[in-house]
Nucleic acid binder design. Structure first.
Length: 91
DNA sequence: CGTATGACGTGCA
DNA sequence: GTGCACGCCATAC
């Protein structure tokens, strides 16, 4: 039995380049589909650069936030091939 | 143990 | 389409 946070990290680390998941998706893959709230909290407190948390966005298409700065998150996503439009993803 | 917070999501105006 | 308010879970204090 591991913490929900570790479960989320494992899922996020499995996200391939050029792809992205929503907080709800990560929560579901982590085993707590209804705990997307906690997903954001965990990633927020997480400072591990090994976690591509920039590939996790909101369900409405918004990029959401980022500990290192939303600008950095958008930059990374765009560099991966994801189109960002006015702070939104592929919309 | 109880309260408050937060990188959210959905509903309504 | 945008903005505000409420509800939700896990973690921190």
């Amino acid at each position: 039995m591991v913490s929900f946070q570790e479960r989320v990290f494992q899922v996020v680390k499995k996200i391939p380049p050029g792809e992205f998941l929503t907080y709800k998706m990560v929560a579901k893959l982590a085993g707590r589909p209804w705990a997307w709230r906690a997903v954001g909290n965990i990633l927020n407190k997480n400072k591990n650069p090994k976690i591509p948390c920039h590939r996790v966005i909101r369900s409405n298409g918004r990029v959401g936030g980022y500990n290192q700065g939303m600008k950095k998150k958008i930059y990374l996503l765009k560099k991966e091939g994801i189109i960002i439009k006015h702070g939104k993803v592929a919309c």
